[in-house]
Structures are given as C-alpha cells and as structure tokens.
C-alpha cells in the first residue's frame, strides 16, 4: 500500500501530498512575515535562512514526488464532467510547475552574487552564474507572484476538494487520507 494503484493513492503519495502542502503554507507565511521584519528584529537574519533551508527541502521532496508520480499508476479520476476533470488535471500540473519555479526563483535571489545557498548552515548549494541585471530584484518579484498564485490555487484546490466531499459525496478527499480503494469509499 505504499505505491499508487488505479484504485487509489498509496501512503507515499498521501504523505508527500500533506507534508508538501503543510510546508508550502508554512513557507508562504514565513515569507510574508520575514520581509516585513525590521533590522532590529532578532529574526531578521534567521527567518530568511530558515525559509531558504525549508524551501530547499521542500523542492527535494517535490522532485521525489515528480519521480514517484512518473513511476506509479495514477488513480482513475473521480466521475465528473470532462471540463472539471481537465480543470483538476491542469491545476495539478500547475502546482508541479509553481513549486519548481518557486524553487528556481528563490535560488536566484539568494545566489545573485554567486554566493552558495546555505541549507541549515551545513550544506552549501553552489551558485550558477546567470549574470542577469538586477537578478535579485527580478527573481524576487517573480518569486512573490508565483507564491501568491500558488496560495490562491491551493485555496481553490482545497475548496474543490471540500465541494467534492460535501456536495458530490465522492472519494476525492478521502482517497487522499486513506489507501482504501476509492470504490469502497462511499458516504452520504
């Protein structure tokens, strides 16, 4: 029950989904908070360092998740109109893109001067020399808009999951919480 099957998600996918979702919300909150900190705040340096470290870990999890998805069956979509199936699939693809793009843009802020990226003050990820004009500013702006897009789509994604659960009474939400075959999941 670690792997996915056409009948439902396995534990690896479920844990990846929730841990990454949790991390992304945390990163968003941390990011919004840290840029408002004043120079005399004790978190002024610590918060960005933590944001970077957690961000790197999240991207690593996400890369593993891409691989896991490619090498596992994808559970059959829940019955719904084709347009909604397409919308759901598109948003999933968008999440994959947004997380990767957030990772890349964040990396480009901190490595704008060719300094390595420090992960939990231990591992240094070397900088790639892009040599863009005002790279930190440009990457920062992109990072900001990507993050807001991600959070807005995550909100829509959550509302859609709740709508499936409470209005359509289908397996959408439950199959992301248990590995029971989705056909057995029925509730009123």
């Amino acid at each position: 029950m670690l792997r996915n099957s056409p009948q439902g998600y396995g534990w690896v996918s479920i844990l990846l989904h929730w841990s990454i979702a949790f991390a992304l919300f945390g990163l968003f909150g941390l990011g919004v908070w840290m840029v408002e900190l004043g120079l005399y705040d004790s978190w002024y340096h610590k918060a960005p360092a933590l944001h970077i470290s957690l961000g790197v870990v999240t991207v690593i999890f996400m890369l593993f998740r891409y691989g896991w998805r490619w090498t596992n069956p994808v559970p059959a979509p829940v019955p719904q109109p084709n347009l909604l199936k397409l919308a759901a699939a598109t948003v999933h693809q968008l999440f994959y893109f947004l997380v990767l793009a957030l990772g890349i843009s964040g990396y480009m802020i901190s490595t704008a001067e060719d300094d390595p990226l420090l992960v939990f003050n231990r591992v240094a990820i070397p900088a790639i020399h892009f040599n863009l004009n005002n790279q930190a500013d440009l990457a920062g702006e992109i990072h900001f808009w990507l993050a807001w897009s991600l959070i807005i789509f995550a909100g829509i994604h959550a509302i859609a999951a709740l709508k499936h659960h409470f209005m359509n009474h289908d397996a959408t939400l439950i199959r992301m919480l248990t590995t029971r075959p989705q056909k057995e999941i029925n509730h009123e």
């Binding site: 802020i109 704008a112 005002n134 930190a136």
Partner: peptide, 13 residues
C-alpha cells in the same frame, strides 16, 4: 536611483 550599489544584491534589492 535604481542604480544604487552597496555591493550586496539582496541589500540593494
């Protein structure tokens, strides 16, 4: 003003 340079990209940002 955008050409400010204090030799630290994140500070300049």
């Amino acid at each position: 003003t955008a050409s400010v340079n204090s030799n630290h990209a994140e500070r300049d940002k």
